[in-house]
Amino acid sequence: MRYLRYAILAALAIVMVTVAIANRGPITLRLLPEELTGLFGFSWQITLPVFVVLLIAVMFGVVLGFVWEWIREHKYRRDAVVERRSRVELERAIGAAGQKQKPGDDVLALLEGK
């Protein structure tokens, strides 16, 4: 199983390096269209290689997906905490009830009940 994981990671690395080599050309990213720069009085822009923009977009998507799932699964984590607390409380109650009786009392109680 470990070798399969290494093979998949190696194939992914080869694909990413190939995409990076094929997309080395510069690209300019602007915050606002050129028509609006005069209206607002500022223009932020950055020039990066295309593969960097692609990698940043993929990383942003992965992080956004993780955050989305973490928020979506909040109710399940909350329910698990509530159930864990109630389980611990019940275990304490059972332990306290078990300590009050002496060993062997339950057998005598069954025999006397008949």
Rank of each mutant, 00 (worst) to 15 (best):
L32F: 13
R5K: 13
I27D: 02
M16E: 12
N23D: 11
I21R: 09
P33A: 07
M16A: 15
P33T: 06
A10N: 01
L29P: 00
R24D: 12
T37I: 01
V17P: 02
L32W: 12
A22L: 12
P26V: 04
P26S: 03
P26W: 12
L4F: 14
I8Y: 07
V19Y: 11
L31I: 03
T18K: 06
V15E: 03
Y6T: 07
L31P: 00
L39I: 11
G38E: 13
L36F: 07
I21Y: 12
R5E: 15
P33C: 04
A20W: 09
G25R: 06
R24W: 05
I8E: 10
E34Q: 15
E34I: 04
R24A: 08
L9P: 01
R5H: 11
I14V: 11
A22V: 09
A10F: 08
Y3M: 09
M16Y: 11
T18Y: 15
Y3N: 09
V15Q: 04
L29A: 02
I27V: 12
L31R: 05
T28W: 05
A11E: 09
P33F: 08
P33S: 11
L12A: 14
V19F: 09
R30W: 06
L36V: 03
L31Y: 05
L31K: 01
T28N: 08
V19I: 15
T37R: 04
A13T: 11
T28G: 02
E34A: 12
R30N: 11
I8K: 09
L32E: 05
I27F: 12
I27M: 11
T37C: 04
L4T: 14
V17N: 03
A13R: 00
G38W: 03
L12G: 10
A10M: 04
T28D: 01
